[in-house]
């Protein structure tokens, strides 16, 4: 969910950005990071931890922890909380099977 009105801040929604999560089409806005766009769309689980398979979501949102790592356009371990969202990005939920694509 997005904040529509705020007593102090003004949020100007940028233009719509289309992207894909595990093949499904999603919408974010210019200015979003991958994680903020996903969270606003109700996606809270971003990855699964490698040994214990625990669900993980956004934790620090400043690129310090490893909670929000996902596969973005084939590149694994991308910190989605600090990576700006771009048109057509293909995002995949990351689990232990991280593969290297060229």
């Amino acid at each position: 969910m997005r904040i529509e009105q705020h007593p102090i801040l003004e949020f100007e929604k940028g233009e719509k950005i289309k992207f894909y999560l595990d093949g499904k089409e999603m919408i974010g806005f210019k200015g979003d990071t991958i994680a903020s766009a996903l969270y606003a769309s109700g996606i809270y689980k971003l990855s699964e931890s490698k040994k214990l398979r625990r669900p993980r979501g956004i934790f620090c949102a400043v690129g310090h922890c490893s909670s929000c790592l996902m596969i973005v356009d084939g590149i694994p371990n991308v910190r989605t909380c600090t990576t700006p969202l771009k048109e057509g990005m293909k995002i995949e939920t990351q689990n232990q099977e991280v593969v290297l694509n060229e």
Binding site: L52, C65, S66
Partner: peptide
């Protein structure tokens, strides 16, 4: 209780 998230 998770202490190290990266390595579980």
């Amino acid at each position: 209780v998770i202490i190290c998230r990266c390595e579980d």
